[in-house]
Design a protein around this nucleic acid. Structure first.
Lengths: 186, 186
DNA sequence: TATTATTATATAAAAATGTTATATAAATAG
DNA sequence: CTATTTATATAACATTTTTATATAATAATA
């Protein structure tokens, strides 16, 4: 058989780039085919249909974020800079952020399950170490910040022309102080 | 001319029902026409195109929420029950919640502008009165809870099979306490 | 090496959906 | 009563998704 020129990764990547520019429904088979200089067949051989491909693209956003966030983290202020990174993402890449929050979390029956499936356990450990607090408190703090950050990011990703970054960082800082105070005061 | 059988409201309502069931791209001209037992012409005479209609449907979600929230509020615990109501909406009507958060906020240059455009000023006044706090503190509290609620709702609207309502309410309560403590302690 | 089977891709037809053009008939205006 | 307007229907056209068929390059096998 002919040598494989088009891989599933190439298809998803091309679709992801289209969605990154103009949202999920900027994705069309023909535009992907043109981007890859091929016909529509390779695309359909790697996905059932366009809806399925869109789900793959949403997953691809997840992996994009898994690279983006660490690349924007300040090691000296690990925890807070993570929050800032998400917010920056929401502002700079609103379509990717939208896809990220649209990502279906399946088989989740409790907040704990959700927390475990969405976060890296080392983060809570790091927070507990740095702030000298209980690991369970660190998890609560982390989960609260994640929730707040997603809320702020969701708002910002749908707000034009946009809000100054400093103001947003101030807002995030205030929320952080509130959640932290709750823990240290009890 | 023939009597008008189809109004713009009917078109938007039919499209809204379709989106409520299966999301924005479940909306098709032909399905709307079938729901209304008419041809596609009345639809196109009330909207430029499908994208425009989708925007109207998103606005319709807003008005749905403006009815839904008050109907689920406990007058004795006005502020917190509002938060619960949003969360319940996210769980019971995930597609409507998604449309609500996807709603483009335009011409927003600061968090204050955002707050003013998204909230009813009476709410902050009510909070200030009830909790005996400054109006500016009440606004901060309100904005923080709105942000947190949107974050939690966004997560829940994309989580299956779902998390028990009591657990979620506990989470929201804890966040509320944290934001409140920050204000009363200073 | 020659032949066959497999399959990645292309081409093109079919199906679904969005949009526009034309036709019809019912209400209104004169 | 006639002409005009217009809400809707029908039907054509355009775009996109999806499927069917064809082709040719590689792998397998003899």
């Amino acid at each position: 058989m002919p040598k494989q020129k088009i891989t599933k990764e190439m298809v998803v990547e091309a679709a992801f780039m289209l969605a990154r520019e103009g949202g999920l429904n900027r994705i069309t088979v023909r535009d992907i085919a043109e981007k890859l200089s091929c016909s529509v067949q390779p695309i359909y051989s790697y996905c059932q249909n366009m809806d399925g491909l869109r789900k793959d693209v949403i997953k691809r956003s997840d992996s994009f974020i898994k690279e983006y966030i660490p690349a924007h983290i300040d090691k000296n202020d690990f925890f807070k800079s993570t929050g800032y990174a998400y917010i920056r993402l929401a502002v700079e890449e609103p379509n990717i952020f939208r896809m990220f929050v649209m990502n279906e979390r399946e088989n989740i029956h409790s907040l704990d399950e959700l927390y475990l499936s969405e976060t890296n356990p080392h983060v809570a450990e790091f927070i507990a170490d740095t702030l000298q607090i209980d690991i369970s408190d660190a998890r609560r703090l982390h989960m609260n910040m994640l929730t707040y950050t997603i809320g702020l990011g969701t708002i910002l990703a749908n707000t034009t022309p946009g809000i100054p970054m400093e103001e947003i960082e101030g807002q995030l800082e205030t929320a952080y102080q509130a959640f932290l105070k709750q823990i240290t005061d009890s």
